[in-house]
Amino acid sequence: MPVALPLLEQVLPVLTEAEACEVPFQGLDTLWLQLTGTLCNLACRHCFISCGPHDDRVPVMSLSRIEALLAEAEELGVKEYYLTGGEPMLHPAFFDVLERVLKQGPTTVLTNGLLIDEVAAGRFRSLFERAAYSLDVRVSLDGMTAAENDVVRGRGTFARIVAGIHALSRAGLSPVLTVVEHSAGLAAEAARQRFLAFARSLGLKQPRVKFLPLVRIGRGARHTGRQGAEEAVREPVPAEGMASLQCSNSRLATEQDVRVCPILLDAPHARLGQTLREAHRPVRLRWASCATCVYEGLSCRT
């Protein structure tokens, strides 16, 4: 995730408070920790938070911040945790943090896989076995060939990601492979089956694949050529649909604040406060990305 400044117009709300419909908050089930802020060792073309190697717009999380959030989360009865970034494995105390979070609840690590070597895979494996709760690793990939993947994630990344997946599979783990639907029809069942077969060919015994619709903010917006105001949630959302939105039961915490959802890292109006308790309130669907959630069923959860 790169130096590129976020394109402000793309993270600004497209609706006013009054225009946007309100999503009731049902309690904090899922806590996302933006472990490394916007720091990443890649700068993918579709990155919806426009991260990169020198990007410190959102800083790396301090251990004291993590402890404070976890203490609050314990009291609120959080059900699951996600560690994300940027690239969360760039955190200087990554495995210590992971071990700590796993003491408290099931944890999913969202990684681009570049830093998973033999040693890292072994540490994941031992936490997978020892921890009280479930550990899941999710690796992002954008195709089954270097040609498909590398245009999006960068030259040479395919081979390095695949090496990471191999290391995990040799350690006996089956990561979830995440694919962003950046080309039409990739999510179709046939493509899904092909991707599962590909995952098996990498040695994964219990392969799982998650397709994510492309989010139209950050670099993702430039990539699709679609822009903010073209898309918004203007119709009332039925209660059932509301309950399945991440903003009804998830929050994203960074070093500095707590935000509406993991998608709106950059959005200046999506800040709800500094503590989880302050973020315990309804939000309004004001962003272009809300249309992706409501109409395409985007959820970052596995």
């Binding site: 009291e75 609120l76 009865g77 699951e80 609840g105």
Partner: peptide, 17 residues
């Protein structure tokens, strides 16, 4: 409610609520 994904704190919340 799976064993490995139902942390104590969450179960406490369910009992409380």
């Amino acid at each position: 409610l799976w064993e490995s994904t139902s942390p104590d704190a969450f179960l406490r919340r369910l009992l409380r609520d």
